[in-house]
Design a protein around this nucleic acid. Structure first.
Lengths: 191, 191
DNA sequence: GGAAGTAGGTTACTACGAGTAGGCTACCGC
DNA sequence: GCGGTAGCCTACTCGTAGTAACCTACTTCC
């Protein structure tokens, strides 16, 4: 098997295994067994357990960006663009539900590098959201836009996790709620 | 030394150690050494490394509740109450900066029980915020209020973490931004 | 066509950290 | 003084991340 092929295979198996057991409980021995190779092969490809997680995060980051970025500009108005992008985000999480909590929440404990990788993932989202908010006139200045972007990212992330235990909340409904709360404000109740 | 005294001592040292090294990198051997006892003593008190984390989370939960809950009702208006409570939250994080990321973000990877404990912490905040939002007329119905409460919690949490790398953002400023974004809405820029 | 290098593995270890078995000491009630 | 017990220690076991050293087949060059 070629290197690139083997690499993708290991990452895919690892994503499932991490989702199933959690990062800490997943062992490299079991991963190697599932892939059907010996352990040093994994180490040859990724260097360490954390390196493997890092590679996984990088892959997910690319996918998430591809899923949410285009939606922002494709819509007719800023409001609809933001709503479409938020919906895309929740749909993406839905498709990667198993990997989501592991990759985005459990990863932090391993080390500085993995933590930084998770932060880069968030920053990537926050950055283009911030630029978007400035363009949409939704924030008085770039600094405020940066803060607002963090608020958006945090709120969306929390809602995505909350969904796990409240499956009644669909991706569209989650996006709608976010729009109502953040765009219109909570000061007066709206439906 | 009495049991209760020893327990508090171990928890305090553990909080520092976890903050310093991160949960995974912190070893029970080093903790025992810092406390000045042998390892089995720690296990006698907390059962396991995760048990220790759990006890720490429980303590922090009580402190966070005490810091944020009273502020909600003490103020003259709902708007001011929410702002005061958010400010109290960011101030609390400021005081527990070192422990914050470990306890609230890194803990998830250990096991189901620790994960549940972290979720309870968030739920506690979300619950009284939800009830508050209903009372304030800031959400059309209790179900929406529950979603809004999650949005508040997620946004506040994210902003608290973002502050780590953007120390210019004070607790008051963070609370103000949150109020502007969430209460008034982002649809029209306000200062 | 055979020597030399290399890609893609393998088996069999080491190191280290979580958790434990069993014993020791000093104090308390009687 | 003596049994019980609270609080603590030394000295382990065991599982898992990570590694050293070796092996096999294929490609490449003369």
């Amino acid at each position: 098997m070629s290197r690139a092929e083997r690499e993708r295979q290991i990452l895919t198996v690892a994503e499932d295994l991490f989702a199933e057991r959690g990062y800490a409980q997943a062992t490299m021995d079991e991963l190697a067994e599932r892939v059907g190779v010996s352990k040093p092969v994994i180490y040859d490809y990724f260097g360490s357990k954390e390196g493997l997680l890092l590679a996984l995060l990088t892959r997910v980051r690319g996918e998430l960006y591809a899923a949410t970025r285009p939606a922002l500009d494709a819509a007719a108005s800023p409001r609809e663009g933001l709503r479409a992008s938020l919906t895309a985000f929740f749909c993406f999480i839905d498709g990667h539900r198993a990997a989501w909590s592991v990759l985005n929440r459990e990863s932090a404990l391993v080390g500085a590098e993995a933590l930084a990788a998770v932060e880069r993932l968030r920053s990537q989202q926050a950055e283009f959201l911030g630029a978007f908010l400035v363009g949409a006139g939704a924030a008085p200045d770039p600094a405020t836009a940066a803060v607002y972007a963090q608020i958006l990212v945090g709120a969306a992330e929390r809602l995505a996790l909350w969904q796990e235990h409240h499956p009644a909340l669909t991706a569209e409904a989650a996006a709608d709620h976010l729009m109502n709360a953040l765009w219109n404000g909570m000061s007066g109740a709206r439906t």
